[in-house]
């Protein structure tokens, strides 16, 4: 069973994000990077699948400049067997910033095709752009069935790996269980597993693992265009509810339930 996990490197949660000078992207000079969280869960699911099956290979895949190798190393340290790095230029033509989701999906699909994987896992969306496109577009390009928002994957047929059953998260706490044939692509939702911590032994073993670099194809023409990037403007609104305590409570519950939607 060969599993490819496509991951993305994104700015850290606490990173101070500033709009770049051209107003169409983010200034990366001061940003600390980390693995996209849903991708970390995809990797965890892959590692657990391999552990449950008792055999197999987990290949981790990432497109981006030199810096993404730290994220690939982290994946190797946590237990992935090999890494493939699709190298894009740091900036300018062909860099990630110049490519749309379709283009990135093409780069990744190309690399996956060469691996002939049984299963491709990736996070359902990225923490930075949040387009949620890359995974499903990849499935389309690879011509394999896909399922999204997956929390758990089960190998069927005694684990020979030809069919799987996945648990999908729907709205309002509903779950859907779907059986699928392999090969397939799944986009993984955060929180389905407990992530593992990186270990010293993992890091030391990771040094000996293969990290293959592949040059990215030239960027295709964008089908969309980023016009402007701006931070959200903070709106603070205070409204005083008046009336008796009972009335205020009733109004408050109504607002919280239907307007703020937290109840």
């Amino acid at each position: 069973m060969k599993i490819v996990v496509a991951v993305k490197q994104v700015p850290e949660r606490d990173a101070v994000v500033r709009v770049a000078a051209d107003g169409r992207g983010v200034d990366e000079s001061d940003v600390a990077w980390t693995m996209n969280e849903p991708d970390a869960y995809a990797l965890e699911e892959a590692l657990q699948l391999k552990e449950r099956a008792g055999e197999g290979e987990v290949v981790v895949l990432c497109a981006g400049p030199e810096r993404v190798q730290s994220t690939l190393r982290e994946a190797l340290a946590k237990g992935a067997d090999r890494a493939v790095h699709v190298v894009t230029p740091e900036a300018g033509e062909g860099s990630l910033g110049e490519r749309d989701s379709l283009d990135v999906a093409r780069l990744l699909a190309e690399a996956v095709r060469a691996e002939a994987a049984d299963l491709v896992l990736t996070g359902l969306q990225s923490d930075d752009l949040g387009a949620g496109q890359t995974g499903v577009v990849m499935a389309e390009l690879l011509g394999v069935p896909h399922a999204t928002l997956v929390l758990h994957v089960e190998l069927l047929d005694g684990g020979d790996g030809r069919r799987i059953k996945v648990k999908r998260e729907l709205e309002d706490g509903w779950m859907q269980h779907v059986e699928m044939a392999l090969p397939a692509l799944l986009t993984i939702q955060s929180g389905g597993n407990r992530l593992r911590y990186a270990t010293l032994m993992g890091i030391k073993r990771a040094r000996q693992k293969e990290m293959r670099e592949v040059q990215a194809a030239a960027a295709g023409k964008r089908v969309d265009e980023v016009v402007k990037v701006s931070p959200p403007t903070r709106v603070k609104r205070t409204e005083m509810l008046t009336g008796s305590a009972d009335e205020v409570a009733a109004k408050l519950v109504e607002r919280l339930r239907f307007e703020v939607k937290v109840l």
């Binding site: 850290e12 949660r13 606490d14 980390t34 407990r194 992530l195 593992r196 911590y197 990186a198 270990t199 010293l200 032994m201 993992g202």
Partner: peptide, 27 residues
């Protein structure tokens, strides 16, 4: 260091230190 210790709270603490850089897991 070998990953033999599996503990829900311990893992949470390590991940908080890895990601947030503090033991309380705050931003």
């Amino acid at each position: 260091n070998t990953g033999a210790w599996e503990d829900r709270y311990g893992t949470k603490l390590f991940l908080a230190l890895e990601k947030q850089g503090n033991a309380l897991g705050m931003s």
